[in-house]
Design a protein around this nucleic acid. Structure first.
Length: 952
RNA sequence: GGGGAAGUGGCGGAAUGGCAGACGCGCACGGUUCAGGUCCGUGUGCCCGAAAGGGCGUGAGGGUUCAACUCCCUCCUUCCCCACCA
């Protein structure tokens, strides 16, 4: 007889098994879909429904970071956050909120295209298949989405609006006075009226149309620029800095990446740096995430200082203008534009041999140094980080504060992209400058007095200024902060510099030479300047192409040139249009948008997914996302996702949202009011002695003598801890869990493993604990042998009733704070109490089991619905009020006080809850007198309701 | 190098400064069972003890407090992020 057959014979016919769970789950999933149970009503438009039970109720918008439907499918780690938001949403709906909990798919981008390339299938086809599979898997988990609002970013109806937003950004400029984006037409008007001077001062009407367009284009929030970009021949595309690893390789594929200057679309996110920084204070986000964004934006305050040179002023940015007297040399980035003009024909008198790099002329030295840098990979540069390299340009600059002649070097420790690409070097107060000064034997002047016990080199701390007096100004004796103020004052008066702020944040490189992305709604006319397509022409559909592969090259071929796949589609490339000045032939932009584009605004589309007149109806946006009080930015009420999006996605989305806010399309000035980062589910993986991974589920654990060893067959294997993945042979899928235990058990297990924001290891063998819990709950309602409902209107005993109300109160608090693990622990306790007090054969008190079923239902929704129905109720419990604790049963009559003597618990006393402190003290002392050796206690502390502490 | 998070039984984890280890896994014993466990019950931090009881215990060390997993200082370890940002 097989085990399965035996099980079938022996297991009571109405036991809650995985098989029964599967039936119940399918039944309720169909029910919810059929009845549109989780449809949330909008205030207006096609999704409005005044008869809905939650129409007009307070709203709650709960979202997950939507998934990338990859070809690999889901493992048990993926839905952790989704289950969390689902439990929270179901709870909030029962607590009276109109809850919108939508889900969509982020389907454009590199991985989908890579997967398509690997399988030789068109990305549209594989994407559609993947989305279908994800939908099925998520439905199987009972996730309560309003599925009328589901979309993929690859739907033309969706990316039509992605392109529309691009056009709004393209047609806007940032007004620094008003600190906001304004329509580009208003800028044109300012130039026309003369209120705003043109860059070279000529009147607007004397400029040629092309000159005017260039000026306007230079102001746009989305603009074309020759930018140093990361060209990856192996992938055949340029990459954003964020997609390049510290080793200078592509994050995806690990191919070499080269720097190349190309004409690219850029987004002027730097214009919003200050607002992106300031508004972090208004957000209910985890502090570490805010800090990461602050660091990414990297605002530093200081001064710009101009140092006269023979080739014109060399401008530097410094955060330490107070150390100006300590500058002993200058360094420009090797790429700095002034360098070529600076370099003299011959080395000046007295040039130290070490400065020349052994070259006969400065020009040769500079060229050789540049070549040596270009030949290095970033890994080598990184490895060389210890030893500073560089070369003298042969030129000197003048320190404006004292006339000192400062040799100008080029060195790669100065970055072209930050500040002005040049620095004044102050070795006395900067460690990097000190190192360089040591290598090149340059003078070191301390301008801040280090403390007596300071034995380091460069001193970066605070202290009185020294050696800082000149003919125009003296800083001596001032602290760093005062010295900064005084020197900036002098710089501004004397015209040698000014206060300045710089940011680490760069403008966002927004184009990719890829196929699987949103095409730009841009064409070029005969001038080669960009022209926006009119809104009526959206969407610009991605043309079907049989050959969509990027032209990849030998990964090491640094001389290769990028080529966009769309540029090979001759038919699509040119288009005849009449844009108001007669029919003309235009060339389309052949770039596509990066995969961040679709996720930059999707929260808005959920609110009004079918609107074909606008992005989102303002009334719907105001209802779901609008500010609710003075000083509030508004936004999604709860946004759950992984920390890996702490910077990029969240920063880009905030930027787009702010542009839409400035232009008046949304009432919320931030997209995500509250952010929560869920942890990751990790897993063990096992390698055999050859280092090959073996299937984790085949590994046996043997514990002997307190030491645990692992075996695969007879072979001992080594355990590793890490991510779940195919290559590690340790994947467990939700489908496995649903088949083995049922979706409800799986959900309960994931939510009970630990706090939602903490990563933890997956352990399949522990899942059974959650099944046993649900089985006990089931057994409280259903007789396993007869299938009869065994709930009666009997009174629970007082202790059980009190426990019920304490549980209700505790579970409500836990749910509000997303502490699902402790909520479940409380529910198990109550279930265990009922199991003990209502054994089989006796009725289970309805008064307790009904609220228990309601409280369990956010975690185990299918079982909840089924039991609710068995308890005699019609329809779904999704809108039934969540239980409320009765204060009368929370109050206690007797309190047990532990009594500590000198920090150790020596006794327990029972006193009436309303006993006075004095009564408690007396009772406690009577109990522990023996521990005091007959002496009077020195001190007695009564913490009301908590404990008594006696000090002897 | 800078920043962040975290160290509690065999394991996952509980604990507004107030009885450390809730709840679950595992394990042990018992029940039901011919048997098995996706059942039920009891026990389960460590050490001494037959027990009653006692001692020790939240990475290490110090401090504040009647009282510290919790607050402060120093150190160690692990994970994550950023890394020549002037």
């Amino acid at each position: 007889m097989t085990e399965a057959a035996r099980d079938e014979m022996e297991v009571p016919p109405f036991r809650y098994t995985a098989a029964l769970a599967g039936e119940i789950e399918a039944k309720w999933q169909d029910y919810w879909e059929e009845h549109g149970t989780f449809h949330a009503p909008n205030p207006t438009g096609p999704l409005a429904d005044p008869d809905h039970p939650r129409a007009g109720a307070p709203k709650l918008l709960v979202m997950d970071m939507f998934p990338y439907p990859s070809g690999e499918g889901l493992h048990v780690g993926h839905p952790l956050g989704y289950i969390g938001t689902d439990c929270y949403s179901r709870y909030a709906r029962m607590a009276g909120y109109n809850v919108l909990h939508p889900m969509g798919f982020d389907a454009f981008g590199l991985p989908a295209e890579q997967y398509a390339l690997e399988t030789g299938t068109h990305p549209r086809k594989t994407t559609e298949e993947n989305v279908r599979r994800y939908r099925r898997q998520l439905r199987r988990l009972g996730l309560a989405y309003d599925n009328r609002r589901t979309f993929a970013t690859t739907d033309p109806d969706y990316y039509r609006w992605t392109q529309w937003i691009f056009l709004q950004i393209f047609n806007s400029w940032f007004d620094p006075e008003r600190r906001k984006a304004r329509p580009i037409a208003e800028l044109v008007e300012e130039f026309e009226s003369g209120r705003r001077p043109t860059p070279d001062g000529r009147p607007w009407d004397q400029l040629s149309p092309v000159e005017r367009r260039r000026i306007i284009d230079d102001h746009r929030l989305a603009y074309l620029a020759e930018a140093p970009v990361n060209w990856c021949p192996g992938l055949g595309t340029v990459l954003a800095n964020e997609e390049v690893t510290a080793e200078g390789r592509s994050e995806r594929g690990n191919f070499p990446v080269f720097t190349r200057t190309l004409r690219q679309w850029m987004m002027r996110i730097t214009a919003y740096a200050d607002r992106l920084l300031e508004d972090l204070d208004k957000l209910d986000w985890p502090e570490p995430i805010k800090l990461m964004q602050r660091n990414w934006i990297g605002r530093s305050t200081g001064a710009m200082i101009d140092f006269p040179t023979p080739a014109g002023p060399l401008r530097v940015f410094t955060t330490r203008p107070d150390t100006l007297f300590g500058a002993t040399y200058m360094v420009a980035a090797p790429e700095h534009e002034l360098v070529d003009a600076l370099v003299p024909d011959a080395w000046p008198e007295g040039t130290k041999p070490a400065w020349t790099g052994g070259h006969a002329t400065p020009r040769e030295a500079v060229a050789a140094y540049r070549a040596s840098i270009a030949g290095l990979t970033d890994v080598e540069r990184q490895a060389d980080a210890r030893a500073k390299t560089g070369v003298f340009t042969g030129a000197y600059a003048t320190n404006p504060v004292n006339g000192a002649q400062l040799p100008i070097f080029i060195a790669d420790y100065v970055l072209a992209g930050y500040g002005t690409g040049a620095i004044m070097a102050v070795p006395g107060q900067d460690e990097r400058d000190w190192e360089f000064a040591e290598v090149f034997d340059l003078p070191i002047i301390r301008t801040v007095q280090p403390p007596p016990d300071f034995d380091g080199k460069a001193y970066v701390g605070d202290g009185p200024a020294i050696n800082s007096s000149g003919p125009h100004v003296s800083l001596d004796g001032l602290g760093v902060a005062e010295a900064k103020e005084r020197i900036i004052g002098w710089l501004e008066e004397s015209g040698n510099g000014h206060r300045a702020v710089t940011y680490r944040l760069r403008d966002w490189l927004f184009s990719r030479q890829r196929y699987w992305g949103e095409p730009f709604p841009i064409v070029y006319d005969e001038t080669g300047l960009p022209v926006a397509l009119p809104e009526e022409m959206l969407p610009v559909e991605l043309p079907e192409m049989a050959d969509f592969t990027p032209r990849a090259y030998d990964p090491d071929d640094a001389d290769s040139e990028p080529e966009a796949p769309l540029s090979r589609n001759r038919e699509w490339l040119t288009v005849e249009l009449d844009l108001g000045d007669g029919p003309k032939v235009y060339t389309r932009d052949t770039n596509t948008m990066p995969n961040w584009a679709g996720s930059c605004w999707y929260e808005l589309r959920y609110l009004d997914p079918d609107n074909d007149r606008m992005l989102v109806d303002p009334e719907n946006e105001r209802y779901w996302m609008g500010p609710t009080h003075e000083g509030d930015c508004g936004g999604v009420d709860l946004y759950v996702g992984g920390v890996e999006h702490a910077v990029l996605h969240l920063l880009y989305a905030r930027f787009w949202h702010k542009v839409l806010y400035d232009l008046g399309y949304v009432s919320s000035c931030e997209p995500f009011r509250k952010l929560f980062n869920q942890g990751y589910i990790q897993a063990y993986a096992y390698t055999d002695p050859r280092g090959v991974y073996v299937p984790a589920h085949e590994v046996r654990e043997v514990t002997e003598g307190g030491r645990t060893r692992y075996f695969h067959g007879d072979v001992e294997v080594r355990r590793e801890y890490g991510k779940m993945g195919k290559s590690l042979k340790n994947v467990v899928t939700p489908d496995d869990m649903c088949a083995q235990y049922g979706a409800d058990t799986f959900r309960v297990y994931e939510m009970s493993m630990g706090p939602l924001d903490v990563s933890r290891p997956w352990e399949t063998r522990a899942v059974v604990g959650s099944l046993r819990f649900l089985q006990r709950l089931w057994r409280l309602v259903v007789d396993e042998h007869t299938g009869a409902v065994r709930v009666g209107d009997t009174e629970p005993d007082e202790q059980t009733r009190r426990l019920l109300h304490r549980t209700i109160q505790g579970v409500r608090a836990d749910m509000e704070n997303l502490r699902f693990n402790t909520a479940i622990a409380k529910l198990i306790e109550l279930t265990n109490r009922l199991t003990a007090t209502s054994p089989p054969g006796t009725p289970t008190p309805r008064e307790v089991v009904e609220p228990l079923v309601l409280m369990v239902s956010p975690f185990a929704p299918h079982l909840g619905e089924e039991l609710w129905q068995k308890l005699g109720h019609d329809g779904s419990l999704a809108y039934v009020e969540f239980p409320t604790a009765d204060p009368a049963w929370l109050a206690v009559e007797q309190v047990t006080y532990p009594v500590q003597v000198n920090g150790k618990v020596r006794a327990r006393i029972q006193v009436a809850a309303d006993a006075s402190e004095d009564q408690v003290r007396k009772a406690a002392l009577a109990e522990v007198a023996g521990y005091l050796g007959g002496r009077e206690p020195r001190k007695v502390i009564v913490v009301p309701g908590r404990m008594v502490s006696v000090v002897g």
